[in-house]
Amino acid sequence: MTEIDYRDYFFYIATLITVVSIGYYAWNRHRLPPYFRYLAAFLPLHLTLDFIAHFLARAGIPNQPLLHLYTLLEIVLLGLFYRSLLRSPYWLPPYFRWFFGAGVVFIVANTLFLQAPFEFNSYAKTFSSTSIILFALLYFYNSILGEIAAPQRSGLHLINTGLFVFYMGTLLIFLFSDFLRRNDQNILFEIWNVNLILSILLQSLLLIGLVLVRQGSVDSAQAPPQLNQELLPGKRN
């Protein structure tokens, strides 16, 4: 019988919540705003690669190539999610697409020239996490200005909070993971638990956020009738 340690429990809880989120998205995809397709693509990617990586790690097989692939797809999908979410009239820096493109090139170059596929891609992962933190800050900036559409505001706020807290929390773990792995693998595993706990928090907030956004979309479709602006003086042709 395979031995299950408490790390597995964290992993299974996060996986279960991700599966529920994917199911919820699939069930309600027509009622959710279009920018959610990028987040919806990120969820199964996260689930699949995390799942394979977890069992490879337990079997003692190096799983670093998966992390390289995950880092690349993660920044692409979450970058597109934020770009699509913060489309006009929201404020997005004009050089966003250049930064985004350069980031993708850097991650690929890192795998090709700096940290080979079987090495831990700490540079790329740190860059990816920092970028996502910046995207989340961009969202917060827009939300403080009161620009985010009201019906989806609370759900998007939770989703953004989940991504922000997760990547802020795991930034140092990724930054030092290569160094820790070389010194003491057991310590890396211990620290990796924090990543799992934050992953549970992220997946939970994504799921609740999805539910709230969907609820917000339904509520806005059933909004009560507004005053007839055309009857007002100066509004009529």
Partner: peptide
Amino acid sequence: NRELAALVLFGVSIMLLLA
């Protein structure tokens, strides 16, 4: 290594608190 791990965990906690 333990001290380093504790330092990293402390850093993570600070980052989380900041977030």
